Computed example of a mutant assay.
Amino acid sequence: MISNNLQSSVVLVEYTDTYDEHLSNYHLGEDQLQFTSLPLDKIKNPNVSNNAKHVLILENSVPVGYFALEDGEKLFKYSNNSNARLMTAFSIDSRNQGKGLAKSGLQFVKNNFSETDEVVLGVNKRNIPAYNLYLKTGFEDENEFYEGPKGPQHILHLRV
């Protein structure tokens, strides 16, 4: 368990199936689902590497956010750094948005993955709210782009 000193009720944990019932009720609006996937869909996706770390953001022991940290072939579409991890499917349950949970979760990444020296991600150019959130939490836009399945993406970097 990775605890948050700033807000004691928020922690990050690696996924286990004990959270499946809560995750089956996870909600994202259609406007967000066009850019990401629901946590259980990502976790159970057979195309995701077995080495991926699935991370839950918990508030009072209930999953309110999720992201995956991937390596391998998918990572190398975004970075040549073998010590980097690709953050995918980052989301906060729509009923818990606006509480600063995304910002808290992203700030934890900096301090809690010692084998990683960089986190990269692709954010769709049309997803302005997510792009701005990532910049506010320390990601840098180095003017690199990736043509994703849903259009061009900014490639953002977070040195950890």
Rank of each mutant, 00 (worst) to 15 (best):
I128R: 04
S61F: 08
Y146K: 15
E21C: 05
E115H: 13
F67W: 12
K136D: 09
S37Y: 04
E14P: 04
L40I: 06
N124W: 11
L40Q: 04
G105V: 04
I128D: 10
S91W: 04
G65Q: 05
N50K: 13
Y26I: 06
G100R: 02
F90L: 13
E73F: 04
L38V: 07
S114L: 08
L158I: 09
P149T: 12
V123R: 02
E30M: 11
S79P: 11
D17I: 01
F113T: 03
R95H: 09
L121S: 08
F139Y: 15
V120G: 06
L156W: 07
S9C: 07
E147I: 14
L28C: 02
S91D: 02
S24V: 03
N50Q: 09
F76T: 13
I128V: 15
A68E: 13
V160D: 00
E142S: 04
V10D: 00
L121K: 08
Y15V: 01
K42N: 13
N127F: 15
G148N: 02
V123P: 06
H154P: 02
L23I: 09
N47G: 15
F145T: 15
L75H: 08
N127D: 15
G151L: 10
E115T: 07
E115Y: 14
Q97L: 07
K125R: 15
L33F: 01
N5L: 14
K77Y: 07
K150A: 14
D17M: 03
N50D: 13
G98F: 13
E118N: 07
G122R: 01
F90W: 06
T137P: 13
H157Q: 06
G122P: 02
L156C: 12
Y146W: 11
L12V: 11
H54I: 01
S9P: 00
D117K: 12
S3K: 14
D20E: 09
N5P: 10
H54C: 01
N47K: 12
G100A: 05
A84C: 05
Y134E: 11
K136E: 14
A102F: 00
P129E: 01
Q153L: 15
G148K: 12
H54F: 15
L133R: 05
L158F: 13
E14K: 14
N83M: 10
N4A: 03
K150H: 08
L156Y: 02
P129D: 05
N132G: 00
A89K: 02
R85N: 00
L133Q: 06
R85S: 07
Q153R: 10
F139K: 07
V120W: 07
K99M: 01
Y78R: 09
F35T: 03
T88F: 04
R126E: 13
S114I: 11
G151W: 09
L33H: 03
L6V: 10
S3G: 01
H154Y: 15
F145Q: 09
Y131I: 13
E70S: 06
Q153P: 08
N45M: 10
D93A: 08
K74H: 13
I43A: 00
I92W: 01
V62S: 09
T137A: 03
N124K: 11
L86N: 01
V62F: 04
L133E: 04
S37C: 04
Q107V: 13
L135C: 10
